[in-house]
Design a protein around this nucleic acid. Structure first.
Lengths: 227, 227
DNA sequence: CAGGAAACTTGCGTGCACGCAAGTTTGCGT
DNA sequence: ACGCAAACTTGCGTGCACGCAAGTTTCCTG
């Protein structure tokens, strides 16, 4: 199920993707993000510029993906790894915190780079949307009910988590000035917490969703209170 | 506060934006979306192409915005208009349903056009993100607690609503047929008209968030159970 | 072990987003 | 009333996303 035959073709594809990721990040760090053209990345990875954006839709995406990589899959796996007894809300929260705080080795340097450019920051924030699909799957699995209604609920919850994570990240790397506030809207709580620790931001952003998770769990397993 | 003196400059700006919206939609309906260039829209609105995308970041955005227009503000207003007694979750749900089902006059034709092109469909879905900021403000106002914590909660809830709405819309116009229609004929044979009631989709997508709203409300007004 | 289909790469061409630096208009203070 | 400063428009140039139509590699089936 995981890899029946990995397929030679598929491995080359992943290798190319990885090469592009690495090249994009390396060049961005070396020269500064604005001095890197798609052509350069493609050349460093040994493919044509046209092939480059068969893999990435934007220059920023390539750089950022070197950091986010397979974070989506990791989060889902981390949730699945939690024992079935714990509150689903807690399982998700801890899994998210775990995967976002464990930045890895050179990721720190990359994050510094990312925060330095608005376009990169935005691309990084956009990656949060990517955690929804795998989260949907793993949440649906926890809500063992197989009804279509449950599937729908899982999807909404996963998307909400993604949105909350995005908000947390936005708050965390707030020191940026470029804000795209909607015109005509009143100051919607403009005074947000001066970025504290990332785990705290994540937890407090996810907290409001707790009751929604609890209710969803209760609907499918009302009997299971002390198991 | 709402309109001290609108300012002459600001009105011209809005007029230009409106002209671009209208021109974009009209041309797209007349010729088919792929036969409309930014240059055409700009010319029809009487501005330069460069000015055009001081207003819109993409061609699709201009077309879609003619339909969505000030839906964001309307939703927020609709929420604010509900009596303070009702469940916040219900207020939000009904406001959203109200504003999305009331398609308006010629919006039906436009929606047909939008569903016919993937790029337009995506742009339309992206507009759901725009309802979050005004929703945040109005939700925060309902949760009368002034703490920063409440502001944060409001933001997360608003973003979750936006995500849920997006999911509902995705499900609504799911029939993602290829629709590689030949240029020049719109509404020829690709009846992509999604069935299923949109209000139902919206309600069931928003339902899972109900408990989260309830909990948020309870936190700020715990005494008020039989008022 | 061929043969062929499906997938992937790539050169080419088009339209577009956006930075930059004038030029022009609006609005305000003196 | 006058002129200044900020905001808006716009021509120009650059890099990029992406459709299209070969050419090439991988994989499967008879």
């Amino acid at each position: 199920m995981t890899t029946p035959p990995p397929g030679l073709r598929e491995r080359k594809k992943q290798a190319t993707r990885e090469a592009l990721r690495e090249a994009a990040l390396r060049l961005a760090v070396e020269r500064g993000p604005d001095q890197v053209r798609v052509e350069d990345i493609a050349e460093a990875a040994g493919v044509s510029p046209r092939t480059y954006n068969n893999y990435f839709a934007s220059r920023e995406q390539a750089i950022v993906s070197a950091v986010t990589a397979d974070r989506e899959a990791r989060i889902a796996a981390a949730v699945a790894a939690r024992p079935a007894g714990v509150r689903l809300a807690d399982a998700v929260t801890e899994a998210v915190v775990e995967q976002y705080t464990d930045t890895g080795e050179h990721a720190q340097e990359a994050l510094l780079l990312i925060t330095s450019r608005v376009a990169l920051r935005d691309a990084y924030l956009d990656t949060t949307a990517g955690i929804a699909p795998p989260l949907t799957a793993v949440i649906a699995e926890r809500l063992e009910d197989v009804g279509a209604h449950t599937a729908h609920t899982a999807r909404v919850l996963a998307a909400s988590v993604a949105a909350a994570v995005r908000i947390a990240l936005e708050g965390w790397l707030r020191p940026t000035s470029g804000s795209a506030e909607a015109p005509g809207s009143i100051g919607a709580g403009g005074l947000v917490v001066p970025s504290g620790s990332l785990p705290d931001q994540l937890r407090s952003a996810l907290a409001p969703l707790g009751p929604a998770f609890d209710a969803a769990e209760r609907r499918t397993q009302p009997r299971d209170a002390s198991d």
